[in-house]
Nucleic acid binder design. Sequence first.
DNA 1: GAGTGGTCTAGACCACCCC
DNA 2: GGGTGGTCTAGACCACTCT
Lengths: 244, 244
Amino acid sequence: MTEPLPSPSFRPLYEQIKILLTQSLVAGEWKPGEAIPSEMELASRFRVSQGTVRKAIDELASEHILVRRQGKGTYVASHSEPAYQYRFLRVMPDSGEKLHPRNVLLELRKGKASADIARALAVKAGSPVHVIKRVLEFRDRPLILDEMVLAATRFPGLTVARLEEYKGSMYSFYEEVYGLRMIRAEERIRAVAAREPAAGLLRVAAGAPLLCVDRIAFTYGDMPVEWRRGLCATDGFSYFNELA
Amino acid sequence: MTEPLPSPSFRPLYEQIKILLTQSLVAGEWKPGEAIPSEMELASRFRVSQGTVRKAIDELASEHILVRRQGKGTYVASHSEPAYQYRFLRVMPDSGEKLHPRNVLLELRKGKASADIARALAVKAGSPVHVIKRVLEFRDRPLILDEMVLAATRFPGLTVARLEEYKGSMYSFYEEVYGLRMIRAEERIRAVAAREPAAGLLRVAAGAPLLCVDRIAFTYGDMPVEWRRGLCATDGFSYFNELA
DNA sequence: GAGTGGTCTAGACCACCCC
DNA sequence: GGGTGGTCTAGACCACTCT
């Protein structure tokens, strides 16, 4: 029998299992929404105890990469599921009611990555990109004006038709159409004065204060996929955050 | 047939242990910065296995209520420790350098809780409160103008002298002087136009866009302790947030 | 009833820290 | 060397879901 030698840098077994599971996810062995094999089955596949598989899955579940459902199985998390639909949308009405915005596509064009965006997307400056502009409306009021930038190589054949025909959030679109599941994002928020054309699109006066939310969204392995800038008027709405 | 009725409220053992540990923390049996008893010791105290204590501690550690240190022990987290000093401060220089702000106290006065603040602090409207105003400076530039409101009953004998003599963050002050450890906070962020006197204090033009960050901070058992409103100019700085 | 995740136990051993 | 947390195992039993 070949026992794994204790390597100089100690790596617990469950972390290696975690890596193996992640590789299977990246490779598409199990797709978003599907169940992965049972803990016992994975334990015998990897030749470890159920407890070790369990710890690996626990961590992936705490990162919202997998979802456990008692009595049923463990599933690959998906932005297409209602509960995860607007997982990354932190702007909420102060009234406390749930925000189910409507997506209005403004523009899709080709462009080249600026230095900043190239760095954010880990591509070369000047690389071809798609630029998407859209407005999120809530109760027929424009709420957020978004600009998204995607590396063209990762989104071949992206057209207005495909975007418009799609029902659901951007991230379920990336996921279902391009197999890119977003698992994490970083946001930087600033306050800015509204300028045209944003002011008009959001129906606020020029110079009105807006939230400017810059986001980089990542898929498995911390690979950046989307750069986004959102402008948002915050009368009646606010960006909610929990600090723990 | 005798159908075994589904137990109305199933509570796993480790959750009960978690509650017992939390009660000891609230009661002050172990103070911030101190070590709690070892896992084996707690296991025998509670008559459960080490694994069960371990799971309870794991959860408290993931909530940053306890801190594990391999080979040493498990400690009560404290805002006085350097690593946790500015745990809840999300405003950072865009340069990426670390933010070690300086605290400048402007005002401490007594007041009465407005309806909104009373609700936030779970006290009666009109209850006596302390109102603290201060500026956080970074490299001699005013960065954040904060107004904090505290229920007077929870902070007896609060004076300018005690506040000014204290070195460190607000929350280490609450913790060391009043035994109130903040473990969680909720923030709501909006964009607002600067007005006097905030504009002058932050050295921005009237009407300039500012971040307005409203916070409620909680101690053990989700008890609200502090209401806070921060105004922040964001040229060169931004509010960082990670979405997971 | 069968299968899944969830809990709990007991014991062994490893990595880390400090004396 | 002795104590602490960290990992891993094997097995038992519980709670939940679906059939």
